[in-house]
């Protein structure tokens, strides 16, 4: 254990890593013990892929647009959007976990750690993102059997894209968790955050098609960070980098994470205003 002298100094890099690995390990263990969470995380995009995409295959043709070099089936087009959806739901699931932890006291265990709060929250976000990447690869494996194949290199290049988009969407979830008073309010998140973000994006239809039908909706899609997360993943899956999408996702990620860290800061944040301490 630490000596009194070392306790006077700050933590070492190794201790920061120990903290990070501990948080990731706990998130992974939690995920493995919640099999229903894993299954539901997989079933959701698969329903879209097997039912929705199959049904709309004939009506929603997709012309040649980057990064695709040929006409693609609708299933192929929406696969990156469904990957982003996995991360969106995972980010919101993490926020749900934080609200639950706050109600049961689990989040306090994390927040009373002597490490800087920004580090603790960033570690938790990274842990959630890594869990979402596991889900994404399970989805890609099933999609591969459904003849949705990306170039082999895409399966590696997608990892950094997933890290960036996962952190951004997780930060959004964390920010939302700081303003949700009770677990029951989470239905509102579905209606006011998840569904609008998913539908007003390029996940289900290309932006040029949206532009043709509604210019205001196109503008909304353009400012929706989920659109850019989807495009970042789409291009990465085909071995390319969409720099504009990357810049926008990083910027939104920074914004959301700063907001989340401030929200969980006891001096400035939202948690203390709730009056949750009862005794």
């Amino acid at each position: 254990m630490k000596t009194a002298a070392s306790a006077e100094r700050g933590f070492t890099l190794a201790q920061y890593l120990t903290c990070l690995i501990g948080i990731v390990r706990r998130e992974a263990l939690r995920f493995l013990h919640q099999r229903e969470r894993f299954i539901s995380a997989l079933v959701r995009p698969l329903v879209w892929l097997f039912i929705f995409a199959a049904g709309f295959r004939q009506t929603l043709g997709v012309s040649i647009i980057p990064p695709y070099e040929t006409y693609v089936l609708y299933e192929v087009y929406i696969a990156p959007g469904l990957i982003a959806m996995i991360q969106l739901f995972n980010g919101m699931q993490s926020s749900l976990t934080m609200v639950y932890d706050r109600e049961t006291g689990g989040i306090r265990t994390l927040l009373v750690s002597p490490f800087p709060r920004a580090w603790l929250l960033a570690s938790k976000l990274l842990a959630g993102t890594l869990v979402s990447i596991l889900q994404v690869y399970a989805f890609l494996l099933i999609a591969w059997f459904w003849d949705i194949e990306a170039p082999p290199v895409g399966y590696f290049l997608i990892i950094p894209a997933l890290l960036v988009s996962g952190m951004m969407l997780g930060s959004l979830g964390m920010l939302i968790s700081s303003v949700i008073r009770q677990l029951e309010n989470f239905a509102g998140v579905m209606n006011f955050v998840i569904f609008p973000m998913f539908f007003a994006s390029s996940a289900l239809y290309p932006l040029w098609r949206i532009k043709e039908s509604s210019l205001p909706l196109y503008d909304i899609c353009q400012v929706n960070p989920f659109t850019h997360a989807t495009e970042l993943i789409r291009f990465a899956l085909y071995g390319q980098i969409d720099w504009a999408a990357l810049a926008i996702v990083v910027a939104f990620g920074f914004l959301f994470m700063t907001g989340a860290i401030l929200a969980y800061d006891p001096a400035r944040g939202l948690l203390p205003r709730r009056g949750q301490a009862a005794g």
Binding site: A14, Q15, T18, C19, L110, F115
Partner: peptide, 14 residues
């Protein structure tokens, strides 16, 4: 596992 998590939150290696 519960205690290992807490140890990590204090920077104590496994």
């Amino acid at each position: 596992e519960n205690l290992l998590y807490h140890a990590a939150l204090h920077g104590i290696a496994p």
